[in-house]
């Protein structure tokens, strides 16, 4: 939506509303917890206190848990989220650089991928791909927090062509390109040839690291 005026009657995205409701529920829950705390007496628990406790400790946190989980899962795949770790700064800076002609920047500035650009190119398709990406993301958080990583950052495994072919594979531009002879397509499909061999490097930061 960058650079475009919002349409008339714009009321925000589902994610915006989930975030708003989540914050309201959290604040309401904190107030109810304070009320429950004050109504607790050493001599025992009154009927009204039981009601406050049921809502504040049992019921409302369930709503908060659902909204936080949904919001956190969605937000953890945004470019801003990937860029929040300083080791990713050069990659995200290159991605957003309209002068850059790296593969990632080209996809970003032309919006070949509309949003969640890092996640889209670094996760495989289907439920299995999502689960694997989330588990790997958890590993990244752990290594970043504990400092168990080396600079320059390198991709953990060779880049899988299926991530490129998921979008480009059925495109006529791809199928009819002189650089993609029909006899080469099976090699691309089974990763015998990498798309990045001809179209890389994906990131300018990689190029600089390789030059060092």
């Amino acid at each position: 939506m960058d650079g475009l005026p919002l349409p008339h009657g714009w009321i925000g995205t589902t994610a915006d509303w989930m975030r708003g409701f989540g914050i309201v529920f959290v604040l309401l829950n904190l107030v109810l917890l304070a009320v429950a705390w004050r109504s607790l007496r050493r001599s025992g628990v009154s009927a009204s206190t039981r009601g406050w406790l049921f809502v504040a400790v049992g019921l409302l946190p369930l709503m908060v848990a659902f909204l936080s989980f949904a919001h956190g899962l969605e937000q953890s795949s945004t470019v801003a989220s990937c860029g929040s770790c300083h080791v990713m700064t050069p990659f995200v800076a290159d991605l957003r650089d309209i002068q850059s002609d790296s593969l990632a920047a080209t996809h970003f500035k032309n919006r070949y991928i509309q949003d969640r650009q890092c996640y889209t190119c670094h996760s495989n398709y289907g439920l299995g791909g999502t689960l694997r990406a989330k588990l790997e993301g958890l590993g990244h958080v752990w290594r970043y927090t504990t400092g168990a990583y080396e600079i320059p950052i390198k991709i953990a495994a060779p880049y899988d062509n299926v991530r490129c072919l998921g979008c480009h594979g059925a495109s006529q531009k791809f199928l009819n390109a002189a650089g993609h002879p029909k006899e080469e397509l099976p090699n691309l499909a089974r990763n015998a040839t990498s798309c990045l061999d001809c179209h890389g490097p994906a990131h300018a930061a990689q190029q600089k690291a390789a030059a060092r």
Binding site: R19, G22, I23, V26, L27, N29, L30, L33, A56, V57, P61, V64, A65, L67, S68, H71, G72, L73, Q75, S76, T78, A80, S81, S84, C85, G137, L138, H140, V141, W142, Y144, T145
Partner: peptide, 21 residues
């Protein structure tokens, strides 16, 4: 429950994977 709420609030306010984790 209050600590849980504060951790949830951080998820809503800060876009950092470490808060979600």
């Amino acid at each position: 429950a209050a600590v849980f709420d504060i951790l949830a609030l951080l998820v809503f306010l800060r876009e950092k994977p470490v808060f979600f984790a």
